[in-house]
């Protein structure tokens, strides 16, 4: 496209400023984790690696990470199964209420977070009459993670169509064999991408977790949230924050290795 040199320079500058806006706060987090002082003040006067060593032996953090991983795994597996079933039902069949079901699956994430959180809490306490536990957290996470798996799988199902499966049936394979040998391999990338997104969402969730976890069940976001207001914990929080910033390249790397487009688009 024809664009004046000045126009290009201005746009490049805007891009640079935008990226600076995105990355400077993250850089502050990483630098601040080496801040020798326990009290935040920018710029840090002296740096130390002491807090990084202390975090390695911090049991509170380790248990919180473990809880988050447990919740994330249960939520992800559940969301993958339910989201995939739903995607098949909506992609391959027409039925009364199909439109409503496709709205219903988006609702937990489309409505304001606090509303979803209170609805889930009400479900457990009033409707189902169960005590809050690590399971209610996992069930809640699965409920809003379902949509990302569903989105990925239904997009893949629409793109691949049914011809390969029909060919398999014509060649004499029964439904289960076709699923194992044809459908599943076609879906694998979308399932992995959906699972990655679901785990990421669950690992990061704070609003829903706060209202569906009993005291004592502490996921990593809850741990951070509780310790934000404790000044003597600030150095540990800083290091945990820095680690989470640095780790955010991992899912990106994984998604590049999977179908690059599905993961990135699915996060939306």
């Amino acid at each position: 496209m024809l664009l004046s040199r000045r126009g290009r320079t201005i746009l490049a500058a805007a891009m640079g400023l935008g990226l600076a806006f995105i990355y400077l706060p993250l850089l502050v987090v990483v630098v601040n984790s080496f801040n020798a002082s326990q009290v935040f003040a920018w710029p840090p006067r002296s740096l130390t690696t002491r807090w990084w060593r202390e975090v390695a032996s911090n049991t509170g953090v380790r248990e919180a990470v473990l809880t988050s991983v447990e919740v994330g795994l249960v939520a992800t597996v559940t969301a993958v199964v339910l989201g995939t079933l739903l995607a098949f039902a909506l992609a391959r069949y027409t039925f009364f209420g199909r439109q409503s079901v496709s709205v219903l699956v988006v609702l937990p994430i489309a409505l304001p977070g606090i509303v979803t959180a209170l609805a889930l809490r009400t479900a457990f306490q009033t409707f189902l009459g169960v005590e809050l536990s690590i399971w209610t957290v996992a069930v809640s996470h699965a409920t809003f993670c379902m949509v990302v798996v569903y989105n990925n799988v239904i997009a893949r199902l629409r793109r691949t169509g049914t011809t390969a499966e029909e060919a398999s049936a014509d060649l004499g394979a029964d439904g289960f064999t076709t699923f194992r040998l044809v459908t599943f391999p076609l879906l694998r990338g979308a399932l992995l991408a959906g699972a990655l997104l679901a785990f990421g969402l669950s690992f990061d969730e704070i609003v829903v977790t706060l209202s569906t976890a009993p005291p004592g069940v502490t996921t990593l976001p809850i741990w951070i949230f509780q310790n934000l207001s404790r000044p003597n914990q600030a150095p540990v929080v800083n290091v945990v924050a820095a680690v989470l910033v640095l780790l955010s390249v991992v899912p990106l790397y994984l998604s590049q290795r999977l179908a690059a487009d599905t993961v990135t688009a699915g996060r939306l």
Partner: peptide, 24 residues
């Protein structure tokens, strides 16, 4: 695209915390 997307994977709370440090 990857550079714009990466921060979405950084924790929500950490980003809010970063802005607490920014605006203090």
């Amino acid at each position: 695209v990857a550079l714009v997307l990466t921060p979405l994977w950084a924790s929500y709370l950490v980003k809010v915390y970063a802005w607490q440090a920014m605006v203090q």
